[in-house]
Amino acid sequence: MTPVDRDEAIRALRSRRPRNRFARWTGIVLLALTAFAWTRPELELGKLFRQRTKANVTRFLGEVRPYPLQEQPWDGGVFGGWLETTLGDGVGRRAVLGTLALSVAAICLAGLIALLTCLFATRNVAHPEPFLPGASPPTRWRTYAWRVVVWATRLVYIFARAIPEWIWAFLLLTLLGLGAWPAVIALAIHNTGILGRLYAEVIENLPARTPRALRALGASRTQIATVALYPAAQGRFLLYFFYRWETCVREATVLGLLGAAGLGKEILQAGAGDRHDEIVLFVLLGSALIIAGDVVSAVARSVVRRAR
């Protein structure tokens, strides 16, 4: 191949490369918007370069050091004592376990509701003639009625997940009063929206052979679901469940900032007293909890994957 031939061949290959106008325009629009965003005064980037900010940062970094050790040489014993007074008396344990319990209760509630409602969002089960269309032509209003069921369920799911956990919690804390329920329900609402959609997709994508055979034998929707659909979808359901639990742990660490239980509440209280050393300690505890949750979830997911 001469160099000219090669260039020609490369040019020919290049002109035949897969191109996607939609993706390209998305990129161009987002790039332009981002460039514009960085020029906006609303970002207040200038404030970061003021003299006051620099002094503030220095002061903050000094206050992050445990209080009895501030402007003192490092001493392991003093540090241990500080840990003891800050986390002792069950404060640290309650904060961590409270956060963990919040995430577990919320994801169990969300998983349960998603499990019970996801079938209403599937086009194959929520249909006048599930899995065997054409066996007997359904009346028009029955077709429409089922379609309304599917879209209504999906709309509820979308709305539930479009509103962030934090905002649900903020609203529910006022409407329901203090306690753990509002935080649990807030986390559960958002995650029901996500799990419900994912679960419905899993059910829709299952191979149709078994449910079709069952339907031909005259099985009801409930029977098909319990015998064929849920068992076949179980593994995928569990994987999604654990993925969402990881994010639940993450969100649970902050919901306490609204007044619910857990690490967030400790951070709120330490913040109210400007005790930055304690804030950082509780933030690190939360970080450890999240990382531990990720590990537990990864182990559980690999168990689920390997079990057939």
Partner: peptide, 9 residues
Amino acid sequence: LAAFGLSNA
């Protein structure tokens, strides 16, 4: 907020 003070950044 604690480190930099109040700023949208």
